[in-house]
Amino acid sequence: MAKLIVYYAHPGHQFSQVNRAMAKVVAGLERITFVDLYAEYPRFEIDVGLEQARLLDHDVVLLQFPMFWYSTPSLIKEWQDLVLEHGFAYGSGGDRLEGKHMQLAISAAGPEDAYTCNGYQNYPLRTFLTPLEQTARLCKMEFVAPYVLYGSLHAPANGLLEAHLSGYRRLVEALRDDRYDIGAALELDTVNPDNLPILDGGAA
């Protein structure tokens, strides 16, 4: 049984369709910790001590957010800047997060084919995520393949949202219950409801 913490960050919570629904799914699950970062720190006064204690207390850190300008919402950056301290998360003596896993669950407005060398975004999605990937590496954490929804603004209308939500639920439960094949996930680029490497009977 792994201990899992979900950090959800969306500054426009009330305007969101995908992320709000995703947050609702995982917030109701048992034996996971759910944190709405923008609700907890509406004025960006992050409680560093509390956040570090939370990290120490969990094995998997899941960051759920919409991609804004090829990056995270600003509060996640603030959280990184303050919580991942030298001597705690990295640098001399900074090995407290060693061996933990970082899982992302993100939504992107652009279609999947835009995130290719030939698409209008010019780069694969993973390229835009390299800052987070390297952050995990510097903190001696494992960066597991991100759970991605492309074309997120269309998803509610074309019926993809339902599958995405149930996939999200299966991912989180599998991570929690040690049924997620981390080894396989590390090999993958990104994961979605159809290619989740869940062990024995992970289907919902």
């Binding site: 919570h13 009330q14 709405d36 923008y38 609700a39 907890e40 509406p42 004025r43």
Partner: peptide
């Protein structure tokens, strides 16, 4: 019940 960041 307003989201704290929305209230802010």
């Amino acid at each position: 019940g307003v989201h704290p960041y929305a209230a802010e």
